[in-house]
Amino acid sequence: MTENEMTSNESTESTSTAEAAASSPDPSGDPLVEQSIDVEGTNETTGTTGKPVIESRDLNVFYGETQALQDVNLAIPEKQVTAMIGPSGCGKSTFLRCINRMNDLIDAARVEGDLYFEGKNVYDDDVDPVALRRRIGMVFQHPNPFPKSIYDNVAYGLQIQNQTENLDEKVETALKRAALWDEVKDQLDKSALDLSGGQQQRLCIARAIAVDPDVILMDEPASALDPIATSKIEDLIEELAEEYTVVIVTHNMQQAARISDKTAVFLTGGELVEFDDTDKIFENPDSQRVEDYITGKFG
């Protein structure tokens, strides 16, 4: 623990040594090491893939006695779509909630290890989770708009953050970006609960991007939607990735393959088995278990 803290304090930027050291006992860790070197390599040479904004190191999460995440080491690159896939109950949502510290709201949850956002460990004592969540927006699995008007839903984040100049304009921009504006522009005063499920989910996305966060976390945002609404949301995610870092949990392999740049595969027990470019994961994974999972031999 102390050694880990020391390394992280000394070098938050150069991660390869820390990660290699941390993951070496893990038998499935080899691709990870390569991976992190790979990311940094591309970063230095081409500059097209962003530098990592979110990095977890030896992240363990427990709910009471049960362990939900095991030694997760992961570096999420900036302004790309990173997908998380894996069987139900393997800890994908848990990992997502670690990033913006929504786990703080669950009494039973205990987080060990480090998670860096822009070089700062978010579990340090001097980090205010409220400030963190203002930079990292979240869209939940089930659409959860407030029982307020459409306008008030989108304006909510701006109001609580005191950014009330040009409110109308910002609301309109957010709704346009979420591809919802044309459907609701004449009924902004209507209750958000009167929208359809797909519209509600896009409203939640508009609500999350209205405050212009750095990262958007999405937990199965399309799981309750029909194919048309789903494809709208997928288009939207690809567009968002031009400006935001998007982390998305999904159960839909095709979706992950279609929209993500990187894919992380978690398997039962909360271990991160493989993390790599999406193409590589789906065409030629290193781990046999990942291949089995993707091809549906094992779930």
């Binding site: 913006n100 929504m102 709201l105 409220v130 400030a131 963190l132 969540r133 203002r134 930079r135 927006g137 979240m138 939940f140 089930h142 959860n144 708009p145 407030f146 029982p147 307020k148 909510y156 984040g157 109001q159 609580i160 953050q161 939640c204 609500r207 999350a208 405050v211």
Partner: peptide, 27 residues
Amino acid sequence: VPDSLRQASYGMGATRWQTIRQVVLPE
């Protein structure tokens, strides 16, 4: 008041007081 509304509010970076005042109490 459904917990998902509190989650939504906290997820937007609202403080506890803002969540109670603007989401929980009106409901």
